[in-house]
Design a protein around this nucleic acid. Structure first.
Lengths: 151, 151
DNA sequence: ATTATATAGTTAGAATTCTAACTATAGAGG
DNA sequence: CCTCTATAGTTAGAATTCTAACTATATAAT
């Protein structure tokens, strides 16, 4: 089956930059999801817990930009976390439009218990390249994104 | 609102590598989606058309690895494209398990008409950095992914 | 030959995220 | 004070992708 030979050795590393970046994203995501399985948390829930841990009192519209999902997705994401008792939302004392998000005790435990997954994945990436290469990768990703920055 | 000051200048470029890569992926995806809007094609449909164009006779399980989606997602993706008359599936003459995928005339037109979107996005990325940096970015993404390669 | 195992593909149903439209609050301008 | 506009958040419903389970074909082993 000659067509097989052609695509078995699929040169995915020759594809367009978008496909390369997607492959990177999905690869890292699946790694984290494997570690997350026992906890029942999804990748995005886990990511959100980590952000809220670093920014207690953060709002939905801020989370929207950090997590790179749309606003209504933040709402349903937060509903899920609130139903599991991991976060609470409080009205902002000065500006009635905002609802500030905080981790509950249970939320802090979950965030703390799963926090190291990010470092674990990053550690394996670091093992595959030099420290300078890793830093370069970070910087070039930032540079790539800033090209499209709308502000 | 002092918390705002903190997150308005959200240092997303300091986050974990996984978040950085996701930001890159979503950013590029949204750019393509903006261009695709008039065609009614989704990002993944468009990507699939491009792959099938380069690999006529490709199978679902091969597409699965290239597009980085699960097998049943390929099936529903191909159902959608087949319903729109953009692809056809033919039984493999030698191995009855395979179904080979081809673009129809309409599919080729769509693929041809939208093919340049990838180059357009890539062009803007290239404008933001040197040629050497772009090549480095590609190589480091490949290097990152190969760390997790399961084969 | 027959059974066991691996691979390709589909179906069914759930979960996540999206778009469009709506409510509510704040701030600016007349 | 009232209206207009901008921003925050939610709701409703559709679309995409996922997991689990199933069918079908091919390959290997006894």
């Amino acid at each position: 089956m000659e067509k097989e030979t052609k695509t078995e050795s699929w040169q995915w590393d020759q594809g367009p930059i978008g496909r390369l970046v997607k492959t990177g994203y999905i690869t890292l995501r699946r790694e984290v999801e494997d570690m997350l399985r026992p906890t029942g948390l999804t990748h995005t829930q886990w990511s959100a817990l980590g952000v809220i841990r670093h920014y207690p009192g953060i709002t939905s519209s801020q989370l929207e930009h950090i997590l790179m999902i749309e606003r209504p997705s933040v709402t349903s994401l937060m509903n899920g976390l609130a139903n599991r008792g991991l976060i609470i939302r409080k009205d902002h004392p000065q500006d009635g439009r905002f609802k500030q998000i905080y981790l509950t005790e249970a939320g802090m435990e979950q965030a703390h218990a799963t926090e190291h997954f990010a470092a674990e994945v990053e550690g394996r990436v670091r093992e595959g390249m030099t420290a300078a290469e890793f830093e370069t990768l970070r910087q070039l990703l930032v540079k790539m994104v800033s090209v499209f920055d709308k502000t």
